[in-house]
Computed example of a mutant assay.
Amino acid sequence: MKKLRFFLPMQLVLGLLISAPSLAATQLDVTGKGMVSVAPDEATITAQVSLVDRDAAKAQARASKEVDAMLSAIKSFSLKPDTLNASELSLLPEYRWDRAIDQQQFIGFRVTRTVSFTITDIDRLGAALSALANAGATLLSSPVMGSSQAHDARDEALVKAVEDARKKLTLLAGAAGMSLSSITQISEIAPNSPRPQPTMMRAERALDSASSNTFVPGNLTFLAEVRAQADAE
Rank of each mutant, 00 (worst) to 15 (best):
A210P: 05
T26Q: 06
D102N: 14
K3L: 14
R154W: 00
F222R: 10
S181R: 09
G177M: 07
I107R: 13
P191G: 04
S72C: 06
P93G: 04
S130M: 12
Q105K: 12
S193A: 14
Q149F: 01
S37W: 01
G174L: 07
P194Y: 08
Q11D: 07
D208L: 04
L125C: 07
T138F: 12
K3Y: 13
M35A: 11
E66W: 04
F77C: 14
M200R: 04
D155A: 05
E88D: 14
M1K: 07
L84C: 06
L180C: 10
L180I: 08
M200T: 07
L71N: 14
Q105H: 05
S209K: 08
S72E: 15
N192G: 01
A137G: 09
F117V: 12
V216W: 00
G146P: 02
L132F: 08
R205C: 01
A131T: 02
L79Q: 04
R96Q: 11
M1I: 09
F222Y: 15
A157G: 09
P143D: 08
L172V: 10
A210W: 02
L158A: 15
H151S: 04
D164Y: 00
E188C: 00
L171R: 11
A176H: 10
D68W: 00
S50I: 01
Q27L: 03
V13C: 07
V144A: 04
V52Y: 01
A25C: 01
A86Y: 01
A175T: 14
T184K: 12
R62D: 15
L125H: 05
